[in-house]
Structure formats: structure tokens, C-alpha cells
Write a protein that binds this DNA or RNA. Structure first.
Lengths: 188, 188
DNA sequence: CAATACTATATGATTAGTCTTATAGTGGAG
DNA sequence: CTCCACTATAAGACTAATCATATAGTATTG
């Protein structure tokens, strides 16, 4: 359901094509929602037949055919409902890296330390991606979405990005604590 | 893939049935992996035909038929590989609550404040569940899995639970910051 | 002895997401 | 003029997950 709601979210900024939506997902939402291209087009079809969006126009300005979609009143309603009624189930998401952490005690001491280092490495990489690209991405997002930079709607995307970074930092701390704990236990 | 790996993880503690595995998921992994019962039985079938697990015995001690599965050498190998090679894709998970946060700027000031309060409320609820149940769950998990309480393999589950709580607390702080920011902007 | 709760496994229908491949046009580099 | 990159949409096959429902036994309670 969330992909469809995300699409409605982007379309409520301005009418756009499936291709635009895919680019925006990649630019600004990739770290919390990897959106599949095929899935986007399928969702657009579903939203269209549901009357949540409508065909705004088919253009062909030096390039291939382009279908622009616009959000309808009904779609605005759905989007609004989704935003003001966050549910408990929206909070429970599959975190396979925590599943790995959970079972990492099955490894030997050495292997577990190697595991923690590997998690640290990947986590640091993601943090760097977020730190170096976040603001650039938000700017690119602003341009692609044709928003003014101080547009009120931008601020939440910045906060979401900030959350990504905060979480990475907190996770680094936890992993370091775990490492220290294991080393301490080995000395006893 | 992670559900299968999780099942292998539980089975590497001791042989058990699909029903046991479902209970353990609910007890100790529900907040980072809601496992569907039907999916567990289907995964067991697949793991069996893959030779990752084997039928350890069918018992019927005052109750319905019970199929116990044990992990094979091959399964141990798969589990070990999964644990020592965490991948970048394991880190990217769909977070629909962040998608909502991302788009919450589309709401009016009042509605956005209401949205943030709702997120705070749900997040606090999850934190309480984790705080009040985590240790109890780990103990229940210990008993169900028939582990001694200071078993080395337990510690990772405690850390995973701790991570859940840390994340909730950090998210609460972020949401409060956002609220303060919105109120400040309204006064300007 | 009927209702309810718990243990235990399984299928069927459906939805969401992934991965691959196809098609078709434009523009630039070598 | 061919290869490559980019824009743009879409179908097909498959996997993972969800939701409902069926079946069957035991144990407890009223």
C-alpha cells in the first residue's frame, strides 16, 4: 500500500510521469523505500483504474511518448487519510540486519567480531552516502519536482534524511558497545 | 530469504517444529520480523527439499501430530555464510512510517502536528511493549528454546532488543524536535 | 456435553515486490 | 554510422508475504 501512497504523495506536488516518479524515489527516498520500476507502472495502472489519479496528458516533445498523471480529489483524500492515520502496522517492518544481529551469537567469538566489523563497515558506508548526498539529493529533488527551495513541503524530506543519519550513528554506537562487551568477556 | 535464514537460526539451537518456530518468532523477533504462520510451513518445506533441514522425527505425545525438524550440515553452512557476509541490501528495508514522515509536509500545520503526535503515541507504545516485555520475552524464549540463562547465544538477542528500544527513544527525540520546529515557524 | 482455548499442520487465493527482457525514440562520442 | 547513455513504458515469470479457512486432536470450564 505504501508505494501507492508514496506515488500519490509525489503527484500531489505536481503532475508527473512514471519515469519522473522513479527518479524521485531514487533521489530522495531510496534509503527507506527502494521502488521497483515495474512496480511503479503497475501501481499507476491500479491508481488510475481506482480513480485516484487521472491521465493529465500524453506529450511527445523530442523524445519517446510520455504519460503524465495528476492526482484526483479522491486521491488527495486517500493520501490525507494515510498521513493522518498512521497505524501500528506501519511501524513494524522487516529488518534483516537486526535478524542477523539477533542470531550473531551463534557465531564463534572471532567470527562474531568479524560480523560486527562488517556491519560497522556497511553502516558507515550508508551514513556517508546520506551525509554526502542527502542535501544534494534534496536539491536535485527540488529541481526535478520544480519546487522553490524554501517550500514548506521540503522540510519533512530533510527531517526524514536526518533520521537516516541519526539512526546510522546510533547503530554505530551500539555495534561498538557490543564489540567492547565481547572483548571484555574474552578476557575473563 | 531472511525468514528461511531465521528458521535455520532457531533450528541450530535445537530441533523443533513449525509451531515452536512460530512461537519463538512471536516471543523474541516480532518487532523486527513479523513471521506469517503459513509462510513458516512453506519455508520449512522448501528448506527440506533443499536439504538444509531434515525430518528429525514425528511425535504424537498426547496431542496432534508434530513434525520436528533438525538443521543439516548444509543448513549450518548456509546459516554461517549468511551471518558472516551481511550485504548492503540487507540494510535497506521498507520503512513506511518514514515514508509518512517524508510526506507529512504536505499536510497543513495543524494536521502535521496531529500527525507527529500520532507517531509519538504509537512509537511510545512500541517502546513500552519492548521495555515491559523484552526481558520477559527473552526469558520465555530461553525456556522454550531450552537454553541456560547465561548461554552465550542469548546475549545477541538482548542486544537486538536493546537496539529496538534505543531506536524508539531516538525517534521520539526527533519527533519532538520537529514539533518544536513547526511551532517556532508558526510564531514567526 | 457444548463451548472455548490451545496445540499443530496445511492449502488456496490474492497481493506486493523482484528480476529480466522487450520496445522505441533522442543525442552525443569516436 | 555504430555504440552507448539516457528517456520512457510495459509485459512475463517468479518469489515472498498475507489473509482466510480447513482439519484434527487435547484439555478445561461451566
Amino acid at each position: 500500500m505504501s508505494l501507492e501512497n508514496g506515488i500519490l504523495g509525489y503527484l500531489s506536488i505536481r503532475p508527473m510521469s512514471g519515469y519522473d516518479i522513479k527518479k524521485l524515489f531514487n533521489l530522495s527516498a531510496a534509503y527507506f523505500w527502494p521502488a521497483d520500476q515495474a512496480q511503479i507502472y503497475r501501481s499507476l495502472k491500479k491508481l488510475l483504474s481506482d480513480g485516484q489519479i487521472e491521465l493529465h496528458g500524453i506529450s511527445r516533445g523530442d523524445g519517446p511518448e510520455r504519460k503524465e498523471y495528476a492526482i484526483t480529489e479522491k486521491g488527495q483524500g486517500t493520501l490525507h487519510d494515510w498521513l493522518i492515520h498512521p497505524s501500528q502496522t506501519d511501524f513494524i517492518s522487516r529488518l534483516s540486519y537486526i535478524m542477523q544481529l539477533f542470531f550473531s551469537g551463534l557465531l564463534s567469538g572471532e567470527d562474531q567480531l568479524r560480523f560486527l566489523d562488517e556491519q560497522l563497515r556497511i553502516n558507515q558506508g550508508i551514513l556517508q552516502q546520506l551525509e554526502f548526498n542527502c542535501w544534494d539529493n534534496i536539491k536535485a529533488y527540488t529541481e526535478t519536482a520544480k519546487l522553490s527551495e524554501d517550500d514548506i513541503r521540503l522540510t519533512s524530506s530533510v527531517w526524514a534524511c536526518k533520521w537516516g543519519m541519526l539512526r546510522c550513528k546510533a547503530y554505530t554506537e551500539l555495534l561498538e558497545e557490543m564489540k567492547a562487551d565481547i572483548r571484555k568477556k574474552r578476557l575473563m
